[in-house]
Deep mutational scan, measured.
Amino acid sequence: MEVRTIKVFTTVDNINLHTQVVDMSMTYGQQFGPTYLDGADVTKIKPHNSHEGKTFYVLPNDDTLRVEAFEYYHTTDPSFLGRYMSALNHTKKWKYPQVNGLTSIKWADNNCYLATALLTLQQIELKFNPPALQDAYYRARAGEAANFCALILAYCNKTVGELGDVRETMSYLFQHANLDSCKRVLNVVCKTCGQQQTTLKGVEAVMYMGTLSYEQFKKGVQIPCTCGKQATKYLVQQESPFVMMSAPPAQYELKHGTFTCASEYTGNYQCGHYKHITSKETLYCIDGALLTKSSEYKGPITDVFYKENSYTTTIK
């Protein structure tokens, strides 16, 4: 009895394709271990004539594949690729409408935090270190965002349907971005203890939790000093293409032309909904596939993004 075979390709990165001759009487799992086709788990399936010449994702289970996976995804987590594939199996079914010149995501599976993050990423200057993220990001900007969303979920250790947080998501993504040249110098002034300067680099240099107003941050924000008295913390120097200011959701007025974009969060910790506000020729609110415009805006804002380049204080 002759062994019926077909020729397929296996890959971990969709760049390096490895030619395989597979036995049609055995499952993919018996031949390769966990195997995925377009995100779908085909591990328990036997090869079919229609699979001839198709590319299958496999887990990096030998040295060659491990090197290829690390170079593309910059992670050695053995569960990463499987999590990416199972997320992709959902995100490829989502709709990605162009809204006001940006790629958004039609609401499904509690994905409003991903839509808000995706919209924000198209408006701030950011370059990702893992080629996987950078490639998928370019495709997302062009309207094909399924891979990018699935990668975000995998890097953030999230599953489809789980509630997510924009600030946490951005923080994970910033860790995989090139923020080497970003720098922030802060000064804390206390009447009792004097003053202390701190220099922050990388992710810490672009994120701040405690106030939404970048102007206020430049002037000074009140913080408790270690001595128990009130101290003032203010920005001395900022070198970065953008800054992200966050605070627990509270009524906040966004003035046209003073910011790049913002995240609105309605609801409580267990259950809520994100919308995205962007400042173009007027203010726009993007909620999944829905767009509304207004000249002014007041609502429960939790993150505001500002364009920056270089700032030095005039406070002496």
Rank of each mutant, 00 (worst) to 15 (best):
T169A: 07
M245T: 01
H90E: 13
C227T: 01
T198L: 11
E125N: 14
P97S: 07
V160L: 05
E253R: 12
N100K: 14
D287F: 00
S104T: 07
A231N: 00
T258I: 04
L119N: 05
E125R: 07
N61K: 13
T120I: 13
M1I: 05
V67F: 15
K293Y: 07
A69D: 10
L254R: 00
G53M: 15
A205C: 05
F70K: 14
E264G: 06
P34F: 11
N61M: 12
T103G: 03
K158N: 04
G272Y: 01
S50E: 14
Y172N: 11
Q195Y: 11
K201L: 14
F259R: 00
K275V: 11
L17Q: 15
T313N: 12
Q31P: 06
Q270P: 02
Y208V: 09
I277K: 00
Q123W: 04
K219N: 11
F217E: 02
G143S: 05
A154V: 06
G101I: 04
C149E: 03
L179H: 02
P78D: 15
P97T: 10
K106A: 06
Y137M: 07
G101H: 07
G267Y: 05
C285V: 11
Y137W: 12
T27W: 15
T314S: 11
G39K: 05
V189N: 08
F9R: 15
M209D: 07
T120W: 01
F56M: 13
L88R: 05
N49D: 13
K158Q: 05
G164T: 03
S294E: 11
C261S: 01
V160T: 06
D13H: 04
K54C: 13
H273D: 00
L283Q: 01
V185D: 04
E204R: 11
D13V: 04
Q237R: 11
L118D: 05
E215V: 06
D165I: 03
L119G: 02
S279K: 00
Y234H: 08
S25M: 09
E239F: 12
M245H: 01
A154R: 02
F305E: 00
T27K: 13
D62R: 11
S86W: 14
L114E: 03
Y284R: 01
A205H: 00
T260S: 07
R66V: 12
N100D: 13
Q31R: 12
A117R: 03
Q30E: 12
K106T: 14
T278R: 06
D135Y: 10
T211V: 13
A117I: 10
T282E: 10
Y96S: 02
P131M: 05
Y208G: 07
T91E: 02
N89S: 12
Y269D: 08
Y208T: 06
L81V: 13
D38I: 11
V99P: 04
E204V: 07
L235E: 00
M24I: 12
T120K: 02
Y297I: 05
S240M: 02
Q30C: 14
S310V: 14
I6E: 06
S310I: 07
S295G: 11
T198I: 14
Y284E: 08
R167W: 03
M207L: 07
S86D: 11
K218N: 02
H276V: 02
E52N: 13
R139Q: 14
P34S: 12
T120R: 03
E204N: 15
G228S: 04
G29D: 10
I105G: 04
C182N: 01
K93Y: 15
E162N: 04
Y306A: 01
D38C: 11
A108F: 04
G202L: 01
H176S: 06
H18Y: 12
D135T: 10
S25H: 10
Y265M: 00
F148G: 02
D109Q: 09
A115W: 03
Y113P: 04
I277P: 00
L173W: 01
Y96H: 02
V8P: 05
K44Q: 15
V42L: 13
T211R: 03
D109L: 05
E296A: 14
S310Q: 09
S50P: 08
L88N: 03
V99H: 10
Q20L: 09
Q222F: 14
T11G: 06
Y269A: 14
D41C: 15
A108K: 08
Y234K: 10
K219F: 07
D23N: 15
N187Y: 08
Y311A: 06
L17N: 13
C156S: 13
V243F: 03
